[in-house]
């Protein structure tokens, strides 16, 4: 339904998106997980025809976005990261307008707009101007404008940023409903929990590069059952190697510097006393300990040596 091959987008010397490729199928939610500046929006903008790719091909419902733009766009719905609404046009008129932009008309349009209004919970505010809405209501309308024409491929760019918990919950349900109705959803986020909850499969990107891809289960399997242990304090160089040399379980060092040491191992909690002992034996001082069980965030840490959220 949506396929991206060897996509590169260059801004001068910076490759905002660097040779990434993935495919997403009908009735599935595909996640694009990565920290701020990873290249998620750039990818979405290339897919939606807003930015010309430097190289690579993108096809939507079988149509190439560059060579066959109008046909490709007809199957596309976009919910951009930043609001894209006419704040001085009633909510209802916003929906009508974008419906018409997708070629809907007459009774089709009428019934679709009515459905969407109820669906995004704005039926009683239909004639009000969005500039009088709360942030969450605007987000929901922004979402509504992207789905009014029942797109086959739906692009969602960090739709929950700045959204209150209730609206967020409602948004998740709406995304799932689109998926259940057969849409192919591309969902970008930098929240691991969102990706874990919503996505059937996902790709992790960082610095424009795709660094891991698979279902949530597959990606977790990459981690094994290994926990991540983060220690802050004062550590001399070579301390990590000294600790590993003590042969505690399957311990490995992910990253280390003078103030922090990140370790990974199976069932880390059982070995904590031994680890602390070996650190103080090597002259290190631990001030703060953070033990995390395996999840996508620790996978990201494992792959890049840094946090998903800075």
């Amino acid at each position: 339904m949506l396929s991206v091959e060897n996509l590169t987008k260059q801004y001068g010397d910076l490759a905002a998106v660097d040779d990434i490729g993935f495919a997403a199928g009908q009735g599935k939610i595909f996640g694009l997980l990565g920290p701020n500046g990873a290249g998620k929006s750039t990818t979405i903008n290339c897919i939606s025809g807003l930015l010309p790719p430097t190289s690579g091909t993108i096809s939507i419902a079988g149509f190439d976005i560059v060579r066959n733009g109008r046909k490709a766009k007809a199957s596309l719905g976009v919910v951009p990261q930043e609001l894209a609404l006419y704040e001085d046009l009633p909510a209802l008129e916003n929906l009508y307008y974008w419906g018409k932009a997708y070629g809907l008309r007459g009774a089709d349009l009428e019934s679709r707009v009515r459905d969407v209004l109820g669906y995004i919970g704005l039926a009683d505010r239909a004639r009000d101007l969005p500039k009088t809405f709360s942030g969450g209501m605007k987000r929901r309308l922004n979402f509504g404008c992207g789905i009014v024409h029942k797109p086959k491929v739906l692009l969602l760019d960090e739709p929950t940023v700045g959204v209150d918990p209730q609206s967020r919950q409602r948004l998740f349900e709406m995304v799932e409903a689109e998926r259940d109705a057969g849409a192919c959803v591309l969902y970008t986020t930098h929240y691991m929990e969102e990706a874990e909850r919503l996505c059937d499969s996902l790709a992790i990107i960082d610095h424009g590069k795709l660094i891991a891809e698979g279902t949530v289960a597959e990606l977790k399997a990459q981690l094994g059952a290994r926990d991540v242990l983060q220690l802050n304090g004062e550590f001399s160089s070579g301390l990590g190697a000294a600790v590993v040399a003590r042969g505690i379980g399957d311990l490995e060092v992910l990253s280390e510097n003078d103030n922090s040491l990140t370790l990974t191992m199976t069932a880390a909690s059982q070995y904590l006393p031994a680890i602390f002992e070996s650190i103080s034996g090597a002259g290190g001082v631990v001030r703060e300990t953070n033990l995390r069980s395996p999840n996508l965030e620790t996978l990201f840490l494992l792959l890049t040596g840094k946090e998903l959220r800075e």
């Binding site: 939606s48 109008r70 766009k73 596309l76």
Partner: peptide, 14 residues
């Protein structure tokens, strides 16, 4: 600024 031109460009509207 309101983002509607971006949305426009992603639709098949000419």
């Amino acid at each position: 600024e309101s983002g509607t031109l971006r949305r426009l460009v992603s639709t098949p509207g000419l």
